[in-house]
């Protein structure tokens, strides 16, 4: 049942040390403000699940919150490497990072299977490549009807899903528009959830009969954090800050410049800062 709270209460209530946590959002609606709150609250030993780790997991890895990463594409989209992720895998800094690596199709199927209450996902994939050799969770099953060999992996059942959405109403019904990624599946597959939203409205706006809405009884904490996806974007609110994604390459390349940036922009700030980032960026883009 949805509870409307502050972001810090939401994270304190839902995300614990050692949890398996999925911050989702496929390029769009990435929950940056919630990521920063998890870092500020000093969570440790997390197993992070996410298709595209992106800047959020680069930051959490670099700050030492992460024990294990379950993922399918660990780059900075259109820019290059995630340097904190690379430093952890290549040099074990700030500590050793376990990885469980999949393809996008596998991850998307595993979330869908989790949301469907199934123990595993079955799909046509992982044919011929080396990923099954380095990930023991990738198995093959035989279709009982046709004899076709298919790939199987365990479904994703995170302890907590964390997503950002455009809006919720006062009951906590959450509406998502635009690139949907696996957010709906991640919330339905998880035991608990935190949803940050651009705004909380009396009534959800006029919408298509098939609009994507998570009913309030499927959602845990709902926190209003305007700009909470920045530098990712919220369709209809503010565009992606592509120049920040490019700038991150230099910030994250070096351990000291990374720490300096994190101190100024995460540890010494709060979720309120995001509204201003998004507002300024929107004005500049127009």
């Amino acid at each position: 049942m949805a509870r409307i709270t502050s972001l810090s209460e939401a994270i304190a209530g839902a995300v614990h040390d050692g949890d398996t946590v999925a911050l989702e959002g496929f390029t769009h609606l990435i929950p940056h403000a919630a990521c920063h709150e998890i870092i500020r609250q000093g969570r440790k030993d997390l197993t992070l699940v996410r298709m595209t780790p992106d800047l959020v997991y680069d930051q959490m890895i670099g700050m030492g919150c992460v024990k294990k990463l379950v993922f399918s594409w660990g780059g900075n989209p259109g820019v290059g490497s995630l340097h904190r992720f690379r430093d952890a895998v290549e040099n074990g800094w700030p500590h050793k990072l376990e990885i469980e690596e999949h393809s996008h199709a596998a991850m998307a199927n595993a979330y869908e299977a989790g949301a469907s209450g199934l123990p595993c996902a079955i799909f046509r994939g992982y044919i011929g490549g080396d990923l099954p050799k380095v990930n023991a969770k990738i198995k093959r099953v035989t279709c009982p009807f046709t004899g076709e060999e298919l790939a199987a992996i365990p479904s994703h059942r995170p302890d907590v899903a964390v997503i950002h959405a455009q809006r919720a109403d006062r009951a906590g019904n959450v509406m998502i528009e635009g690139v949907l990624g696996v957010q709906k599946e991640a919330v339905l597959a998880s035991k608990r959830s935190v949803v940050t939203v651009e705004e909380i409205v009396d009534e959800l706006p006029e919408r298509s009969l098939n609009a994507v809405v998570l009913p309030h009884w499927t959602v845990g904490h709902v926190a209003m954090v305007p700009g909470g996806a920045f530098p990712s974007y919220a369709q209809g609110y503010y565009p992606r800050n592509n120049s920040f994604y490019k700038a991150w390459d230099d910030i994250a390349k070096d351990r000291d410049s990374f720490h300096a940036w994190m101190k100024t922009n995460v540890l010494d700030k709060g979720p309120d800062a995001f509204a201003q980032y998004a507002r300024k960026h929107k004005a500049a883009a127009e």
């Binding site: 594409w73 895998v89 999949h102 393809s103 996008h104 199709a105 046509r124 994939g125 011929g128």
Partner: peptide
């Protein structure tokens, strides 16, 4: 013990066969 850890497969393993 990679010399360079690249981003990984993303959609490619199934794009390649589907």
């Amino acid at each position: 013990k990679p010399k360079v850890r690249l981003p990984g497969g993303g959609g490619a393993p199934e794009i390649a066969t589907s």
